[in-house]
Design a protein around this nucleic acid. Structure first.
Length: 625
RNA sequence: GGGCCGGUAGCUCAGCAUGGAUAGAGUGCUGGACUUCUAAUCCAGUGGUCAAGGGAUCGAAGCCCUUCUGGCCCGCCA
């Protein structure tokens, strides 16, 4: 129930008119109009002008005259524009009623694109040897938001977090603990993931330059990690579990939740790889090189450069670990895993983890023929090779989609603040070099900043209440910064610019929400939705109603294009439109109680709609701020 | 050298998929609005050869081609 009904009505009437006027069938578009050009606009006259050899305006005039004879329920006027567009003006009273009563519904905006089909979204997947930095946050937020949007579009969404607990980076910190004497207990109660990343990892990798034998040590550790029963593997497991637990705290703090943790070490030990390796050989998708630079290796035959899968010493490369995982996600191989409960998350959802040990927990089904993997676009080449290989591996309707995004860089000023001179240029972060900004520290800074601001405005609120607000605003600010731009734009993080609370930011949007709540609180009565909706006839009121009505159109766009920014833009325009309404229309001041009630209904529906839209971004809505 | 992505206002970005009206926001700068439903707000002004050139089209920021420019990727690392 929304603006869509208006579009549907117009489309159906237009189709009849087109038939009557014997205009050839043309796939015209109908869309919400730019302001100043009515409510709905149609390009049919442009398209028809080629066939009819008449000017677009003449055709628009013809159609509009015909339409004018029977306007239907929701249209009050049709006008041909000099430019050739056909513009429709809505009949506000019935449209107001339709939209405002629909928008108060909890599930307002939901659409059925997915038909309950299962889709896997994998995101986060941070190596468990360090804390999340702001680059990882972009991944988490994109993945979490896409998952929420797909769920709203009626997909059954399963969220996976892949834990690379047997890779080089884990071996690095084991070198630190076992050979460089780093304590397993962080000093001064430091968070364990921060300690491992900021201290152990950075300082260990520094040592490689001075002591070449350490690399040999690391390579031995790497081999031992693959054998689950080794002492090193057990030690590694205990360390990575501790890091993972802390990383998850950060993710939960950001409002991201998961269904299952998949461990690379278990993929390795599950023997999925030999099975797939054999199949790839049989299908001639890979080749054993006998000469050239890759002599002795198994390589993937690819359009551009061949990629080594198995080294001449017989060990598998990184990509050879990713292929079985991709195949597993798509359900192309038998599921070798059992599942056990890792924990119950704050959102009350159980978080599962894979295990190779038999247990009594019920079997889970975290695989699907539609898989979205969120990984930054630097890995596009490898992801393409995997996608390509998988499509040849199984020709049935499988969709393995790499959702790529550009990286987060540091501004010159911010890099400077970390003690690095970049000669005025932005710079890529580097975990190895310690050149990054941890997610927790940004959230802490934002929380402090918000706390001060909120206390100033609400001196009577308790500390606990202030903390709750500050927390919600801080998380929202960071999430919004990470999502409001398109995925192919680099985000430059800057201490002064990225922490702003004004303008096109989450606090601006949350503030509009708090204003709406306040009006409803101060009202003498609750809104009665059997209201005199014709009284909402000012432009500030109708603009707001119509924008609320477009929620589902935006969800459709966002879901079809896996474009989370669409929802961010929508939330922002809702807030802008509400703020204009707020400044110009006094809800509680009218003498007419019917007007007050109708406006209260509008405010209520706005609040409800914005809450639903922000929820898709994982942003919570404090009632005061 | 090859591949992928970006280039729109001083700065950060929408708009491009599906060509059509007056190219929009934020920020910055200038000025204005709080005894009022919270000024994390609002209003007004300022600011554009849509990187350049060519092509197809009645019509291009958008489509095609070329060039310039910035970023990333191209290991028997992950």
């Amino acid at each position: 129930m929304s603006f869509r009904i208006l579009l549907d009505e117009i489309r159906s009437n237009l189709l009849q008119i087109v038939k009557r006027l014997q205009i050839p069938e043309i796939p015209f578009t109908l869309e919400p109009a730019k302001s100043g050009f009515g409510d709905v606009t149609c390009n049919i006259a442009f398209l028809a002008s080629k066939h009819l050899k008449k000017s677009p305006y003449d055709i628009a005039k013809l159609i509009s005259d015909e339409y004018q004879k029977n306007l239907g329920k929701l249209v009050s006027k049709v006008e041909p524009h000099q430019s050739g567009y056909l513009n429709f003006y809505a009949n506000n009273a019935p449209l107001n009623r339709l939209i405002i009563t629909a928008a108060k519904d909890d599930n307002y905006g939901a659409i059925d694109i997915g038909k309950k089909s299962k889709v896997i979204v994998e995101h986060t997947s941070v190596n468990p040897n360090k804390a999340l930095h702001i680059g990882h946050v972009r991944n988490v937020v994109i993945g979490d938001t896409v998952a929420r949007i797909l769920a709203k579009a009626n997909h059954y969404v399963v969220v996976l977090n892949y834990v690379d607990d047997s890779g080089l980076q884990v071996a690095d910190i084991i070198v630190g603990f076992k050979h460089l004497g780093f304590s397993e207990t962080p000093p001064g109660g430091q968070k364990f993931d921060h300690y491992c990343g900021d201290e152990v990892y950075v300082k260990t990798t520094e040592q490689y330059a001075q002591d070449k034998s350490l690399e040999e040590t690391r390579n031995n550790i790497l081999k031992e990690l693959e054998d689950g029963s080794s002492e090193i593997a057990k030690f590694g497991k205990s360390i990575t579990n501790r890091v993972l637990a802390e990383q998850l705290k950060t993710c939960w703090r950001l409002g991201a939740y998961y269904d299952c943790l998949n461990f690379e070490s278990e993929i390795v030990r599950s023997h999925l790889w030999p099975e797939i390796f054999e199949k790839l050989k049989q299908m001639n998708l890979i080749k054993y090189e006998t000469e050239g630079k890759n002599a002795g290796c198994w390589v993937i035959l690819s359009k551009d450069e061949d990629k080594v899968l198995v080294r001449s010493n017989g060990t598998a490369t990184y990509i050879a670990k990713d292929i079985p995982y991709a195949a597993w996600k798509l359900g192309l191989v038998d599921d070798p895993f059992y599942y056990k409960k890792y924990t119950v998350q704050k959102n009350h959802k159980v978080l599962w983890q894979t295990t190779l040990e038999k247990n009594n927990d019920p079997k889970q089904h975290f695989r699907s023929n539609m898989v979205v993997t969120v990984i930054d676009s630097r890995q596009a080449r490898l992801q393409n090779i995997i996608t390509d290989l998988i499509s040849k591996f199984d020709s049935s309707q499988k969709s393995y989609l790499h959702l790529g995004y550009e990286s987060v860089t540091l501004s010159a000023d911010t890099a400077n603040a970390l003690g690095i001179d970049t000669k005025g240029k932005n710079t890529q972060m580097s975990g190895r070099k310690g050149l990054y900004i941890n997610a927790d520290s940004v959230l802490d800074m934002l929380e402090q900043k918000t706390m001060d601001e909120t206390r100033k405005r609400n001196p009577s609120l308790s500390d606990e209440h202030l903390h709750d607000i500050a927390n919600k605003v801080a998380v929202a600010t960071l999430r919004y910064e990470m999502i409001k731009q398109d995925l192919d734009k680099i985000i430059t993080f800057d201490y002064s610019k990225s922490l702003s609370l004004e303008g096109d930011t989450a606090p601006y949007i949350q503030y509009a929400y708090a204003r709406a709540v306040r009006i409803l609180e101060k009202a003498q009565t609750k809104p009665d939705f059997d209201a005199s909706y014709e009284l909402l006839d000012g432009e500030y009121e109708t603009n707001l109603v119509k924008l609320i009505g477009r929620f589902d159109l935006n969800i459709q766009d966002a879901a079809n294009n896996l474009s989370p920014k669409v929802i961010a833009k929508y939330c922002y325009s809702l807030a802008v439109t509400f703020n204009a309404f707020y400044e110009h229309v006094k809800v509680l001041d009218s003498e007419n109680t019917n007007t007050i009630n109708a406006r209260l209904c509008l405010v209520h529906s706005f609040k409800s709609c914005l809450e639903g839209a922000l929820d898709l971004l994982g942003i919570e809505t404090p009632a005061r701020m």
